[in-house]
């Protein structure tokens, strides 16, 4: 799994998932991974991308990359702490 700049270990599409379930699914996915692995999260524009991005940083993970996709959703790439 990869996108242009990053070799991804997992990707999860949370388009249509509101708060806080998008964060719950993100945390469940991160819990399956080991430190240093990369997760891509696809999130809706607006509150979802703002809240989930902030929460994963508050939990100590590295937010490596954030890019809006052509359909308006966001791809957020996180390195698990």
């Amino acid at each position: 799994m990869s996108n242009k700049d990053h070799q991804l270990d997992a990707s999860i599409n949370l388009v249509g998932q509101g708060c806080p379930m998008n964060l719950v699914y993100t945390k469940v996915e991160l819990a399956k991974m080991v430190s240093g692995q990369l997760l891509e999260i696809i999130l809706d524009d607006g509150v979802p991308v703002r809240n989930v991005s902030r929460s994963i940083e508050e939990e100590g993970h590295d937010l490596l990359h954030k890019k809006q996709l052509t359909d308006g959703s966001w791809s957020v790439i996180v390195r698990k702490s």
């Binding site: 379930m21 964060l23 719950v24 945390k27 469940v28 819990a31 399956k32 929460s55 508050e58």
Partner: peptide
């Protein structure tokens, strides 16, 4: 690895989103 069902993820969502509890807690 989490073995939660979707219902359980909803039921315990307010615990799981707490940094201090999370999936492991």
């Amino acid at each position: 690895m989490s073995d939660f069902t979707t219902d359980q993820l909803h039921r315990y969502s307010r615990h799981i989103i707490l940094k201090e509890v999370g999936v492991e807690g």
